[in-house]
């Protein structure tokens, strides 16, 4: 999995993920969230448009990211999940924790 960070200003950043969010890449997502928060962006929108697969480790990394941002007084929101990702969120009841937004860029403006 690859990712890029886009600074939207005002402490908001978008994490664009690309690839599979699984056991192997979960650690990288955790680091990405931590370092983005460390740079002062406490409100993070995770763009899942290009994530075609997520397993329990990937989900764990998202929740862990949510915790990290909340502890820093911010928030983590997700956007544009694929069908498979939506399925995992539904199966785990986590769609109630992580509400999916349509676009990452507008996740914090709505």
């Amino acid at each position: 999995m690859e990712y890029t960070v886009e600074d939207l200003g005002g402490g908001v950043a978008v994490l664009h993920l690309d690839g599979r969010l699984n056991m192997v890449s979960a650690a990288r997502l955790r680091e990405a969230v931590t370092s983005t928060v460390a740079l002062g962006h406490t409100r993070i929108a995770v763009d899942l448009a290009k994530v075609d697969f997520m397993d329990s480790s990937g989900l764990g990394a998202l929740i862990s990211g949510l915790k990290t941002t909340r502890q820093a007084g911010g928030d983590l929101r997700i956007a544009a999940p694929s069908e498979q990702v939506k399925l995992v969120l539904q199966l785990t009841n986590m769609e109630r924790v992580l509400l999916a937004h349509e676009h990452a860029e507008t996740a914090f403006s709505g």
């Binding site: 599979r20 699984n22 056991m23 192997v24 890449s25 697969f53 397993d55 329990s56 480790s57 995992v88 199966l91 785990t92 009841n93 986590m94 109630r96 924790v97």
Partner: peptide, 26 residues
């Protein structure tokens, strides 16, 4: 308070299914 709760037992079953399994990473 956040009211989301995790039913661990059933969730393990569903997430360990072959097409969702973390082994898919390998």
């Amino acid at each position: 308070p956040l009211d989301a709760l995790l039913d661990v037992d059933t969730t393990v079953d569903t997430l360990a299914m072959r097409q969702l399994s973390p082994l898919g990473a390998l």
